[in-house]
Computed example of a mutant assay.
Amino acid sequence: MSRPPEFITLSDAAARAVAGPGSRHAALIEDAFKVLLETPGGGVSISGDSRARSLAKRAIAALAAQADAGAEVAEADVRVAVGQARSGEPGPVAPGAARRGPVSPKTATQAQYMDMLGRHELVFGLGPAGTGKTFLAVAHGAGMLMRGEIDRLIVTRPAVEAGEKLGFLPGDLTEKVDPYMAPVWEALTQIVGTEQLRRRRDKGEIEVAPIAFMRGRTLSHAFIIVDEAQNTSRLQMKMVLTRMGEGSRMAVTGDPSQIDLLNAADSGLAHAVAILEGVEGVAVTRFSAADVVRHPMVQRIVKAYDEDAAKRGR
C-alpha cells in the first residue's frame, strides 16, 4: 500500500526557492531521489518511499534555510544540496553564519576554507576547477579591503599557459598580462562591481599582476592571492611566499593535477604544501569533485579523471 504524501510547511520565499523557475528546482530534486513534489501553497508535499523522502527533506531543508536567510537559490545550490543530502554532509551555510566576505560558502569544505582564511596568515586551497577556491579567496580579500582591514588586495598568478610566455604577446605590459588575468578580473567585477573595481584599481588598492612582477617587493597590509599556483616553480613559490610584510595575509590556490609546466615535477605548489603544512599560521583546505558548484557536467568530468588517476596509481 502506498504511503500518503508528507507535507512540509515552508515560508513563501522558501517554497518559491524549492520550486524554482518553471518548477526546475523541484524537478531536479524529484529526479535525484525518485520522489514526487507538489507545492499546493504554504509548503511542499513529498511522495515516495521513506528513504527517498528523508533524503529529499534534507535537501529541501537546506534550500529553505538559504532562502529564509535572504540568499538567492540558484540551480547550482540545488545540486549542492542534493549532493550533501546523499552524503550526509552539513547543508550550505546560511549567509552571515560563517560569512567573511561578500559571498557565502555553499559546501562544508567551502565553509571550512572561509573560516581558515579568517584565522590563518597563509592558507592553501587545493582542488579541481569549479570548487570556488579562487573566487572565495577573492571575495574574502575584497571584504577585508572594503572594511578597511587591509590597504591593498593583490592577486598574482604565473603567466604560463600551455608553454606560452608574456614576451610572445603583443602590446604593453597591461595588454600582455590581461589575457592571463581575465578570470581574476571577472571574479573581482562580480564581487565589487565594475565602477568600484575601476576606482580601486586606479588608486592602487586592487592590483592584478604576474608573479614575475612580485620579485623584490615587500607587500605590507595586504591580502595576497596566488592563483594557479601549480604552475609556479619551486623558486617562484618561495619568492612569492616571502613577499608577505607586516599586517599581510596570503591565500595560495591551485589544482595539483593541472600543471602546465614542461616538467610537472618542477611545480612549487605540492612542494610548498609538503614542507609548510603543520607550520604555525599555515592551513590547508583540500577540495574534491563534491565541491564543484559549476555546471553538473564539470563535477562528473572531475570525478572521471580522479577515478582514472586512482586506477593508474597516481
Rank of each mutant, 00 (worst) to 15 (best):
P105K: 03
I8V: 10
V44R: 00
V18Q: 00
T131H: 01
A142E: 04
G148Q: 13
E277M: 11
A17I: 09
R157Q: 15
Q84H: 10
T131P: 00
F135Y: 05
R100Q: 10
P40M: 03
P92S: 11
R243I: 05
P40E: 02
F213Q: 10
I29D: 01
A76R: 11
L136K: 01
L262N: 12
F223S: 04
N263L: 11
V18A: 01
T232A: 03
D178S: 10
M146S: 13
Q230N: 04
D172I: 07
V18I: 09
G101M: 04
R157A: 15
P296G: 11
L36R: 01
E6G: 00
L122R: 01
A65H: 12
E161Y: 11
G171N: 08
L28D: 07
T253D: 00
R201Y: 14
E161W: 12
T242L: 05
E161Q: 14
G216I: 09
V192R: 07
F124C: 00
V103M: 05
G118L: 04
R234D: 02
T174V: 13
V282C: 03
R294G: 09
R200P: 11
Q190C: 08
G22M: 11
R58L: 12
L169C: 11
I206M: 14
Q230D: 02
F7L: 00
G141F: 05
P179R: 06
R200W: 11
A67E: 11
R119T: 07
R99H: 10
V123L: 01
D77Q: 08
L276D: 07
P183C: 06
M250G: 06
A159S: 14
D227T: 01
L63C: 12
G43P: 03
G41Q: 02
E164C: 14
V293N: 05
G130Q: 04
A27W: 05
S248W: 06
M239C: 04
D77Y: 06
G143P: 07
A289Y: 05
G143F: 06
E149L: 13
G125K: 00
K57R: 15
I191C: 09
S288T: 10
V155P: 10
G130D: 03
G101N: 04
A251G: 10
E205S: 15
V138S: 02
L261V: 15
A182K: 13
R201P: 12
G163S: 13
T242C: 04
A111F: 03
R86A: 09
L122S: 02
H25L: 07
E30V: 00
G20T: 08
A108P: 05
A182E: 08
S50I: 12
G48S: 07
V93Q: 06
E205N: 15
I301A: 14
E121I: 05
R58F: 13
E228M: 04
G247E: 08
L28C: 07
P95M: 09
A309K: 15
T107H: 04
K303N: 15
T253G: 01
M237N: 02
A304E: 13
D49K: 08
A76W: 09
R86H: 11
E280N: 07
D202R: 15
D260F: 14
P90M: 07
T174G: 09
F168Y: 14
R51P: 11
A274C: 12
K176Y: 07
T109F: 00
G132F: 01
S54E: 14
P158N: 15
V273E: 11
